[in-house]
């Protein structure tokens, strides 16, 4: 099977996405987990853009920022460390 340069980029981004999703489970500090979730949303927007759906890319970027801000407010209002 012949892969173009765009396909290699997509594979790299998808591997990064899997790594980030697994790492959110292991992070104990909730503020750091929210920041990593923002990176997840950004990479997901890039993947939508490479799959030729700019509509979903704009929605993902806007909604990702908004939910990240809301979750950050919740983290500041409650405790920052995860309870064992």
């Amino acid at each position: 099977m012949y892969l173009t340069l765009i396909d290699y980029w997509t594979i790299v981004l998808l591997l990064l996405l899997v790594t980030i999703s697994i790492s959110i489970y292991f992070i104990k500090d909730l503020l750091h987990a929210v920041i990593v979730y923002g990176a997840y949303s950004l990479i997901m927007a890039l993947i939508w853009l490479q799959m030729n759906t700019p509509d979903l890319a704009i929605t993902e970027a806007a909604a990702g920022i908004c939910t990240t801000v809301l979750m950050m407010v919740v983290v500041f209002r409650t405790s920052r460390k995860e309870e064992e």
Binding site: P54, D55, A57, I58, T59, A62, A63, I65, C66, V69
Partner: peptide
């Protein structure tokens, strides 16, 4: 702009509404 041109270009009312809300959220922050 994204809300009004949602029918003919990428974007849409959901994404545009969130962008409008983000400007108010930035002001409140």
């Amino acid at each position: 702009y994204v809300i009004l041109h949602g029918a003919i270009s990428p974007g849409g009312s959901f994404a545009g509404g969130i962008i409008v809300a983000l400007s108010v959220i930035a002001f409140a922050t």
